[in-house]
């Protein structure tokens, strides 16, 4: 049987590999491997092409991590630490609104969860250390928050709201990795259903009107805990069955 096709939003970015230094469509393989590990087939969607027709070919979509979302999208001036990727913003905001309109199962990871808030009228905190007075939500620049020696940063608990979709997936609490300096302030049409207990930073959102629209502020694709990816693929299979009926 054909595996559900899961689109992953990707970068079009100046990148160095081997002896090359050029603009490439690209995404860390961790996302691809996470989708394949739970029974989906991943394809990358590059942001160069603001159009939404690709959604008709997909069974599910992951809005992946990346740079900051331009605060102009919620009417705020940029913070000095905000580094935007306008090309991805334009493309992904269009894609997300079309995917919500179509009821396509979606998972938002890090930037992807923040996009869920912004695409539905919400807003972000642009620089979390200003708000919570600590740096524990991000690892040192360029380091892997899961790597040895990074344990002082980027790992914390998340408590989950009773009765939410996230609660059925994760239970009452879980420990996550963390690599972000922005966070959801107003979740728009999404509901906040998980928080970091130390500082009440929003860590999980879900959409009450969608079959499956879940956002997580951490990076499950870089861990062995792929419950969120598995739930997306299950929802994609269910969605396809409904469409075929």
């Amino acid at each position: 049987m054909r595996r559900p096709l899961i689109g992953l939003t990707a970068y079009a970015e100046q990148v160095q590999y081997g002896r090359n230094d050029l603009v490439a469509g690209m995404l860390p393989m961790t996302y691809v491997k996470a989708v394949h590990a739970v029974g989906g087939r991943a394809v990358l969607i590059t942001p160069d092409d603001p159009g939404t027709d690709v959604i008709e070919s997909l069974d599910g979509i992951v809005f992946c991590g990346g740079g900051d979302i331009d605060p102009v999208n919620w009417g705020a001036p940029p913070h000095p630490a905000t580094e935007v990727d306008k090309v991805r913003d334009t493309s992904e905001l269009m894609l997300m609104r079309a995917a919500l309109e179509a009821g396509l199962p979606m998972l938002g990871v890090c930037r992807g969860m923040q996009l869920m808030a912004v695409a539905t009228g919400g807003s972000l905190h642009q620089h979390l250390p200003d708000l919570v007075n600590h740096e524990r939500h991000r690892a040192a620049t360029g380091t892997d928050p899961l790597a040895a020696g990074a344990s002082d940063y980027g790992r914390h608990d998340v408590v989950v709201e009773d009765g939410s979709l996230a609660y059925r997936l994760f239970g009452r609490s879980l420990t996550v990795n963390s690599f972000h300096h922005q966070a959801v302030a107003d979740p728009g049409e999404f509901l906040p259903v998980g928080w970091c207990p130390d500082d009440r930073v929003v860590e999980i959102v879900e959409h009450p009107g969608q079959a499956f629209a879940l956002g997580v502020q951490w990076h499950p694709e870089r861990t062995s805990d792929l419950r969120s990816f598995a739930a997306l693929v299950e929802a994609a299979v269910r969605g396809r069955a409904v469409a075929a009926a």
Binding site: A12, V15, Y17, N20, L22, V23, A24, G25, M26, L27, P28, M29, T30, V32, L44, T46, D48, D49
Partner: peptide, 11 residues
Amino acid sequence: LPSALVPHDYA
């Protein structure tokens, strides 16, 4: 970082 990539020219 191990990545899936292809020159943007193709897309």
